Simulated assay, not measured.
Amino acid sequence: MGPRFKMVQTRLDDYSKTKHPEEKEAEALPFTETIEKERTKRVFPPVAPENLPPSYFVSATYDGKIRKALIKLYEPTSARIYFWYDNTGHKPYCLTNLSPYELEKIDRVVRHPGFDHAEIVEKFDPLLDKNVKVTKVVAKDPLAIGGRARGCLRDIIPEEFPKVSEVPVSRDEIKVWEAKIKYYQSYIYDRNLWPGMIYEVKNGSLVPKKVEQAERMVKQICETFKKATAEELQYIEHWARLLEYPAPKFRRVALDIEVYLPIPTMMPDSREAASQDVCISLYG
C-alpha cells in the first residue's frame, strides 16, 4: 500500500491577508466617525430652506400633525430629500349640489369639528358640457371629508338633508363630488404641480424651474401638430415637457432576500413571513 496523505481542511479566509486586530479597528474607525457625523447633521423632518436650488418633485402627501400638504423635493447636488410644506392656505374640500343656505340647515355639518366653511364656485361639468355652479364644502383636515368609518361630511350631507329639507327629496338627488379623492392628489391638481418636474424654493414659495433647452424641444414638438385642437395641444405640451426635461440621478440600492423553504418548489409568502431568512444583501 502506498503512503497515506492527511487531507487538511481549508477556508477562504486562509487565502486572504491576515490583519492584526489593531489594523482592522483603525480602518473601521474613520467610516464609523463619518456615519456618526452624518447622523448628527441630519434632522427630521428635513424642511426645505427659504431658498432651495432646482430640485425634483418626487412625492406628495399630507402631514396630519401640521395639517398641511407636503411636497418632497430631491436636490441632486446634495442628493438629499427636502420637505416643502404648503404656504398657500389650501384646504381639503368636496363639492355638492346643495346651496350654502341648505347646508346651514344641517346641524351635523355646521357643528362638525372639521367643517370650515362653504362657498359657491364654478366648475366645468363634462356630462353637460358647460360650466355649472356648485357649493364647495371646505374642511380643516382630509378625514373630515372622508376616510373614517362614520361621521364624515361626505356621508352626513346626503343622510341628513332629507330630514331637514322643506320639500320632499330623496337621498339619490343629493350629490357629493370629489369626496373620495386623496387630498394630496386634489392639492397637486389644483396647484398645477407635476410630479417628476423641476422646482425651486424662492423666498419660501415653490416655483417651477424652466430648462431652456428642453423648452425649445417642447416648442418644436408642439409645432409639428398643426392640426391639433387647443385641448389636444394642451396634453401634447404637457407630456412633451415631462419627457423632454432631464431625469434625476438618484442614489439607488438593490435588495435581495434569500428565504429557506422546506419545499423547493414552494414560493415564500411575504404577507406571512413564516420562513427563515438565509441571506439579505444590499448593493448600491
Rank of each mutant, 00 (worst) to 15 (best):
Y260N: 08
L206S: 01
P162C: 03
R108A: 15
P3M: 12
V132I: 07
R108S: 13
P3V: 12
V132W: 00
T40N: 12
M267E: 13
K249A: 12
F44P: 10
V167C: 06
V132L: 01
P264R: 02
E258Y: 08
P262L: 10
D190H: 04
P100S: 04
P100C: 11
E215P: 03
V259N: 00
D63R: 01
L242C: 07
R252L: 10
K91I: 02
S165H: 04
E33P: 03
D256F: 08
L193D: 04
T135D: 10
Y235S: 14
P45G: 09
T229D: 02
G2K: 06
D86W: 02
V218M: 02
M197E: 15
K226F: 05
R252H: 04
L70Q: 01
K37C: 01
A274N: 15
S186W: 11
V278W: 06
I263K: 09
N192L: 13
Y15F: 14
P168T: 11
D277I: 14
E75R: 00
D86R: 03
F83A: 11
S205P: 04
I198L: 03
K37Y: 07
P195N: 11
Y260P: 05
K209G: 06
S16V: 08
D141T: 14
V47H: 06
D190Q: 07
I66Y: 01
T96L: 02
Y189S: 14
I188H: 00
L261E: 02
K180G: 13
V167R: 13
K68S: 05
P126F: 03
L282C: 12
L98G: 04
L243A: 12
P21I: 08
T18K: 13
V176L: 02
F115G: 00
L95G: 07
A273N: 07
E102G: 09
K175S: 15
N97S: 03
Q213Y: 05
L52E: 07
K91L: 04
Q213F: 09
Y93M: 07
A149W: 08
D155F: 00
T32V: 12
P53Q: 07
G114Y: 00
M1G: 13
Q220E: 14
Y235A: 05
T224A: 15
E50S: 14
P195V: 15
R271P: 06
P246R: 03
G64V: 12
G114A: 08
F5S: 10
E178I: 04
W239P: 04
E22G: 11
Q276L: 11
D125F: 00
Y56D: 13
I71Q: 01
A144I: 12
K140L: 13
R39F: 14
I174R: 03
I257R: 00
Q220D: 15
K202S: 09
